[in-house]
């Protein structure tokens, strides 16, 4: 099957293909064995043959138990293998660099933290773990790169993530694999894997306003600073150092302030109310786009970083 498979271009691809090949060998052997036995019986016990048919109607319990237990054990072994590989596929390494993806009918919008924007294409460096943080503006899409053996649905109203470490330079197809309407088949693009140096040059050439700066601008434009600014008279949480911290909630529970928490706080502020604050934050659903939210998150993240540098300097 090696020749049929799409190129292996991520650290996961090899492991996935090994599991596939082992499974193919196992199930293939069993299928062929059953076919051979079936054909053998069909020939030997055809109507006109004179084969021995004594005790034809015996059922042997041992045989039954054997072919119940053996497949079961085999399946459990395969399950164990698959699940351990799968938890690796679903857990991005801590140092994975984030890139933001917004899907909409029928295009992929990519935003790099440095402000570089792409449509229907994604540039990534070789050998560095990348974590895609993805959301959809309308229906459900699915980010699929066959060469990476990775795929993840992209949902409206929440973030999903997908990670990979590219291992081979080149261009690989990016496909939408969740049916999303008329031009579903055209919602495709390219992932370009580049040498780190080339990638740095590419980032340089496409640098725009950094995502965090865009967020800062939106923070003012949407009126967030009116309440959350330090001069504000409204009793609203101070957002410095919020990202990554643990927030106590009004219902007594705690939550980590990650991308999803911040998004929900903007779009569905009633879902989780921070302890000690009145639930007066208005919802921004329908008023700002998903890329605005991503910029705001990047901005809050940067305030986390700047406060830390500030503290270190003191």
């Amino acid at each position: 099957m090696m020749t049929m498979a799409p190129p292996q271009a991520s650290t996961l691809a090899g492991s996935v293909d090994t599991l596939f090949d082992v499974m193919l060998a196992l199930t293939g052997t069993i299928s062929v064995a059953v076919f051979v036995v079936m054909i053998f019986f069909c020939v030997k016990y055809r109507r006109r043959s004179h084969a021995d048919r004594s005790n034809a109607n015996q059922t042997r319990l041992g045989v039954e138990v054997a072919w119940t237990v053996v497949p079961f054990l085999m399946f459990m072994a395969l399950f164990g293998w698959s699940i351990s590989l799968w938890s690796r596929m679903r857990t991005p390494p801590a140092d994975a660099a984030p890139i933001y993806v917004v899907a909409k009918q029928w295009m992929w919008k990519v935003q790099h933290p440095g402000g570089q924007r792409e449509i229907d294409s994604l540039h990534v460096p070789l050998g560095r773990p990348i974590r895609l943080v993805m959301t959809s503006q309308d229906v459900i899409h699915d980010f699929y790169v066959p060469a990476f053996r990775q795929k993840q649905d992209v949902l409206p109203g929440r973030y999903t993530q997908l990670w990979f470490t590219a291992t081979r330079e080149g261009e690989y197809p990016l496909l939408c694999s969740q049916y999303c309407g008329t031009d579903h088949a055209r919602m495709t693009g390219n992932v370009t894997v580049m040498k780190p140096a080339d990638y740095a040059r590419w980032l340089q050439a496409h640098a725009g306003t950094g995502l965090a700066e865009q967020g800062a601008e939106r923070f003012r434009r949407f009126g967030c600073s009116g309440c959350h600014g330090s001069q504000s008279s409204v009793h609203a949480p101070d957002l410095d150092g919020l990202y990554g911290s643990t927030v106590p909630l009004a219902d007594g529970s705690q939550v980590r302030a990650d991308d999803r928490y911040i998004r929900d706080s903007i779009m569905l502020p009633r879902k989780q109310v921070a302890a000690g604050y009145a639930p007066i934050m208005p919802s921004y659903t329908g008023r700002i786009g998903e890329d605005d939210v991503l910029a705001l998150i990047a901005y809050l993240k940067s305030r986390h970083a700047t406060t830390e540098t500030a503290r270190e300097q003191h």
């Binding site: 492991s15 996935v16 599991l19 596939f20 499974m23 395969l78 399950f79 293998w81 698959s82 699940i83 590989l85 799968w86 596929m89 066959p146 053996r149 990775q150 795929k151 694999s177």
Partner: peptide, 9 residues
Amino acid sequence: ATALDVSLH
């Protein structure tokens, strides 16, 4: 097998 379903799904 979840690990294979990711790419085959």
